[in-house]
Nucleic acid binder design. Structure first.
Length: 860
RNA sequence: GCGGGCGUGCCGGAAUGGUAGACGGAAGCGACUUAAAAUCGCUCGGGUGAACGCCUGUGCGGGUUCGAGUCCCGCCGCCCGCACCA
């Protein structure tokens, strides 16, 4: 092979580390804790990663998106803070400890070291000096201090709630550890168990959390909608039903309903399995107890409860209807949730699908009480579908003839008059249970003393550190069976007491980390000057799967901190962008094995076969990358082969960032070709001939300058709107135009190449630096520190106007007219087109439509 | 089950209610080469035509409009969340 004949190529393997070192040496991405007077601050944050061991393509996508924003904002004159850290507590570390005998801390910090090295290879404009992990005692100790502040401010309470209990492993299970109602390790049927736990009173903030969504104008509408529905404000009534006979001294049962207008359509009353009346029934009837036990086996997941077949048990109790005085049976039903409303409902089968399914199953009456418009009351009946829309009330005594909204008001008024109920606002949102019976989390900093009750650990004794010597060979919480850790003296009375052995939900860790980033080494949780200067986060970026819980908890936490005067802003994230997943084709053999892509051959017809056996393989369309499906792509391997810029470019170019993207080998290879193309475009232009004309003097020069400035404008708009794939397309077009520009446009070419590099820099920062230095030998400038190019408005204007001409809405011709052509001239020019005349075919023109700069339409 | 979203060529996608398919990928053909890679050029929704063109087409069925991928109503399919995964 003759080396000399090989065309020169861009060598990213040396260039990328070189520029990373240059940014590092210049501290190009460092930000001060408190910005200087007059600085335009911009806080860019991606959701910090869980240190699972390796970065995956979802991370690459997330951090590339954030990096484009950070670099673009820096170029447009902002002082940018762009930190990185680790959401480092959680179950996987404990699973690793149980499965492989590794200590959770060692496992986690080892993973962090690996992932940090991988992230650094991506060339992200991060301020690494702010890095921390939530499992650092320096971080969780401050969190313990914050929790005590929240306790003092009245945001914390202790109450009972249900958990999934594995009776064989004697441990609490997460919902994801419950599979088809059984524990994932033991396979034992899961039971619900009542535990005393710590709660943050998020429900008190519900009205405010809902109302303030209106002010989040840079959040996706769908996320705001999901949050609003989750908070779930609903207006309705509490209705008190007297029991026909008192049960254990209890004389009545309260239900919540949003449909008091349908009270006359009642055919039963149903309570949750955890309701006191259900317990009373169980005490009298072993069959009831059996049914309740079956309900408990469903676990605590709302999805599982609501998807289960509707089942019930007749308690034999009866209640009296507050309006008609009739008696109705009380059932225990598996679809009634104890956590919502009062844990009891009245069933109106004609107006609620669940009630109808239930009534049909158990042969309960179905009385229609809302008559749809245009329906005949004599013949209207309910078969398998409940009627939930508006209409006229009938079969309903004093409510007859009213429309649904009026009937609701009338029913509530009547309930209040009879003292049998009242109108109320009910919220779906429940308080936030933060206790977890696990080791690898932040210890809840309280001590339980028989004499003094709950006593906070004195602040000068924080952090309450996790013990290192823990035993994972036994099931259950290692903190609880540690021989010494929990035994302490009460800080208040000095007698023997025990530590709380529960740790915090990891959502607590992620509810304030963005604030801690502002002063990550401070001796107190937050530094007022720093958080007030930097918060709110200007652009937060992460997965849609966090649309509700994480974002709602972080909003609540920030509100609470703001209420205590620790943070000025109540809203943590001014702008939010939710990215889609990264998917990859998956291959599954007939026997159910998931195959690695490299073990599969795909022919031209798209038929896939397993290389080893030749057997045909099923191709799954893009599925979320997961180890269990063998369809992951290792970012490290991609960067080895193609470089970070290529990976970044492909991930940005493939599709809009809020949609799921399919990773494809061909796509990366195409991106790699473009990297080389830009490199050739610049290097083959060197050295640039001395400009014989000032830019734009020749017709070709002016044309290239127009393209340059239109490209600047188009890419800027695309970046501002997160349309990164469009920005990529515009840069492709721009590069094509530069390549095609004739030689006499030399003066405009330098301007074009500079603009190309600066527009590309947020997306392919290493290549931009490499070529900038080639274009300006000896320069000490870094593109990362240069300002964003500005489009010259004069060069954005077109020289003529191109209009589409339609006849009856169908395109028939294009015409070109002067910018200032009159409407008459435009119509005359349009009608002169042969194709237009043929389409009109002499028919009279009924209407002429002209939209300036767009279109002409003749209606005939 | 409930809540939210998405659906456009072979594929990813573009398109302030105004020329559907920009840009890229794949594929095919050609140039260069002993050959391949790389590179460059051409073709590339379907139908019809010698050609200017014409008809049709944005998951399905309706509607609003001079004009609908875009707005409205009803379906179908896929995806996300459902409170202890992060």
């Amino acid at each position: 092979m003759d080396q000399a004949s090989e065309p020169a190529r861009y060598d990213f393997t040396t260039a990328e580390p070189r520029w990373q070192a240059a940014w590092n040496d210049r501290a190009s991405f460092a930000a001060p804790d408190v910005p200087p007077e007059g600085a335009k601050k911009y806080y860019v944050l991606e959701m910090f990663p869980y240190p699972s061991g390796k970065i995956h393509m979802g991370h690459v996508r997330n951090y590339t998106l954030g990096d484009v924003v950070a670099r673009y904002k820096r170029a447009t004159g902002h002082l940018v803070m762009h930190p990185m850290g680790w959401d480092a507590f959680g179950l996987p570390a404990e699973n690793a400890a149980r499965d492989r005998g590794v200590h959770p801390g060692a496992w986690t910090y080892n993973n962090i070291a690996n992932m940090r090295a991988e992230l650094k290879r991506m060339g992200l404009s991060l301020d690494w000096s702010r890095e921390f992990a939530t499992c650092d005692p320096e971080y969780y100790g401050q969190q313990q201090a914050l929790f005590q502040d929240l306790m003092a401010a009245g945001f914390v309470e202790r109450k009972e709630s249900w958990v999934n209990w594995d009776p064989v492993d004697n441990t609490v299970l997460a919902n994801e550890q419950v599979i088809d109602g059984r524990g994932w390790r033991s396979g034992a049927p899961v039971e619900k168990k009542l535990l005393s736990q710590w709660f943050l009173k998020i429900t008190e903030a519900a009205p405010d959390l809902l109302e303030a969504l209106n002010g989040l104008d840079r959040w996706p509408e769908r996320v705001k909608l999901m949050q609003a529905n989750w908070i779930g404000r609903s207006e309705g009534a509490r209705v008190r039903f007297e029991l026909a006979q008192a049960v254990d001294g209890v004389t009545d049962v309260e239900v919540f309903t949003t449909r008091p207008d349908t009270l006359f359509g009642m055919s039963f009353l149903a309570v949750a399995a955890e309701h006191p009346l259900a317990a009373a029934a169980a005490a009298r009837n072993p069959k009831a107890a059996e049914f309740i036990a079956e309900c408990r086996a469903m676990g605590t997941s709302e999805a599982a409860i609501e998807q289960a077949e509707k089942r019930g048990f007749d308690t034999g109790f009866f209640v009296k209807h507050p309006f008609n005085g009739m008696e109705y049976p009380v059932w225990i039903a598996n679809f009634v949730l104890m956590e919502y409303g009062t844990g009891a409902i009245f069933g109106c089968p004609s107006g609620d699908q669940r009630d109808l399914d239930f009534a049909r199953k158990y042969g309960l009456p179905v009385l229609p009480v809302v008559l749809p418009p245009d329906a005949d009351p004599a013949t209207f009946s309910i078969a398998d579908v409940a009627y939930t829309d508006d209409g006229r009330i009938y079969n309903s005594g004093f409510l007859n003839g009213l429309a649904v909204p009026e009937a609701k008001k009338a029913a509530i008024a009547a309930l209040e008059e009879k003292r049998a109920g009242r109108g109320i606002v009910n919220w779906r949102l429940r308080d936030w249970g933060v206790s977890r019976q696990r080791y690898w989390g932040c210890p809840i900093p309280v001590i339980h003393c028989d004499a003094c009750g709950v006593v906070p650990v004195p602040k000068d004794q924080l952090p309450v550190k996790l013990p290192e010597d823990v035993d994972f060979s036994r099931p259950g919480n290692p903190l609880d069976h540690h021989p010494t850790w929990k035994h302490v003296n009460c800080p208040s009375c000095g007698r023997a007491a025990v530590r709380e052995t529960d740790t915090f939900d990891t959502f607590v860790d992620s509810s304030w980390y963005f604030a801690r980033f502002c002063s990550p080494r401070a001796a107190e949780p937050l530094t007022k000057a720093a958080v007030d200067a930097w918060l709110p986060v200007d652009q937060y970026i992460g997965g849609i799967e966090h649309a509700i819980l994480h974002l709602l908890y972080a909003r609540f936490f920030t509100r609470a901190l703001s209420g205590m005067g620790k943070v000025a802003t109540p809203e943590p994230f001014a702008g939010l962008f939710t990215q889609g997943m990264v998917t990859h084709a998956s291959y599954r053999a007939a026997d159910g094995r998931w195959l690695y892509p490299e073990d599969v051959a795909v022919d031209a017809e798209g038929v896939a076969t397993e290389k080893a056996t030749g057997a045909v393989v099923a191709i799954g369309r893009g599925e979320k990358m997961s180890k269990s499906k063998n369809n992951t792509v290792d970012p490290g391997a991609i960067i080895d082969r193609y470089g970070a810029d290529t990976a970044r470019w492909f991930i940005l170019s493939d599709n809009p960032p809020d949609r799921d993207m399919e990773w494809s080998e061909a796509g990366v290879a195409g991106a790699a070709r473009f990297v080389q193309r830009v490199w050739r475009l610049v290097t083959t232009s060197l050295p640039l001939p001395p400009a014989s004309e000032t830019p734009g003097e020749t017709p070709a020069g002016r044309k290239l300058r127009q393209v340059t400035h239109r490209s600047i404008a188009a890419v800027t708009t695309a970046l501002e709107t997160f349309a990164f794939n469009v920005a990529v397309a515009r840069i492709h077009e721009f590069a094509n135009a530069i390549a095609e520009a004739p030689a006499d446009a030399a003066g405009a070419k330098l301007e074009a190449l500079e603009a190309l590099l600066r527009l590309t820099a947020p997306m392919m920062p290493h290549l931009a630096e490499e070529l900038w230095s080639a274009l300006h030998p000896g320069t000490t400038d870094l593109v990362a520190e240069l300002p964003w190019p500005e489009a010259d408005p004069d060069l954005l204007k077109a020289d003529t106007l191109t209009l589409a001409v339609q006849v009856n809405g169908k395109l028939r011709a294009n015409i070109e007219v002067a910018l200032d052509a009159s409407e008459d001239t435009i119509f005359t020019t349009a009608l002169a087109e042969e194709n237009v005349a043929r389409a009109i075919d002499g028919k009279p023109i009924r209407k002429r439509i002209h939209v300036r700069g767009r279109i002409v339409n003749f209606v005939v």
